[in-house]
């Protein structure tokens, strides 16, 4: 019991919260960026522009089928070879964004496919152009349909930021490791606290998604 009291000293908790803040920061920015990029890629895959859609599809498939850790290595260790030197925070955000965009592209594409084709035809018959119909009619419905999937993808993203501890991103898990690395009596308290912090954030998000889903349905 004493271990727990010592482990949860203000100094340690503050250090963990520092890490949590990095986790949240990286997650939030990656969520926003990957939602935008993923939607665009998803639409591009759907609309079948010659060559472009095929290339997008190919790249998305490659990225989707690689482990995220590899993508993290590629952005952190690989990009500088192109003359671009990302800091660790940026490298992590970029890796998360690239990976999640590819995952979202697939979700958005299947969402669009699931929206009744008749909707598109109806909109076109009412004088909308193809792009208008896609943007105003089909796309919003596709997103609405896929909200639970998208949110659970974002929850995965938040959890997956922990993988960036391998490049020493100072996020929650990394900070916990530093604390228990210095005093092994803190191992269990740290694991429980880290699990608790992730759980609170991710569970809150999944509850939110359920509410959103019900409201929109």
């Amino acid at each position: 019991m004493q271990n727990f009291i010592d482990a949860y000293s203000w100094v340690n908790i503050r250090f963990l919260l520092d890490g949590l803040w990095v986790t949240v920061e990286v997650s939030l920015i990656s969520i926003i960026a990957s939602f935008i990029i993923g939607s665009i890629l998803g639409v591009l895959r759907y609309v079948k522009i010659k060559y472009l859609s095929a290339i997008v599809g190919f790249v998305v498939d490659i990225v989707r089928n690689l482990p995220l850790i590899l993508i993290i290595f590629f952005t952190y260790f690989g990009l500088p070879h192109l003359g671009f030197k990302p800091g660790i925070l940026f490298a992590a955000m970029l890796a998360m964004t690239i990976f999640e965009s590819a995952m979202l592209a697939e979700i958005v594409r299947s969402g669009i496919l699931a929206v009744d084709y008749g909707q598109m035809e109806g909109a076109r018959a009412n004088g909308m152009t193809y792009v208008q119909a896609l943007w105003h009619i089909v796309f919003p419905q596709a997103i609405k349909k896929t909200i639970p999937t998208i949110v659970s993808q974002f929850i995965s993203l938040i959890k997956d930021t922990s993988l960036a501890t391998i490049i020493v991103l100072p996020e929650l898990l990394n900070h916990a490791q530093i604390i228990y690395g210095q005093n092994s009596a803190f191992i269990i308290p740290m694991f429980l606290m880290v699990a608790f912090m992730y759980f609170v954030i991710c569970y809150a998000l999944s509850v939110l998604s359920r509410i959103l889903d019900k409201k929109l349905a």
Binding site: S162, L173, V194, C202
Partner: peptide
């Protein structure tokens, strides 16, 4: 389900 869905695999 909720417990293990909301904690990172790495943890």
């Amino acid at each position: 389900i909720e417990l293990f869905r909301n904690i990172p695999l790495l943890v």
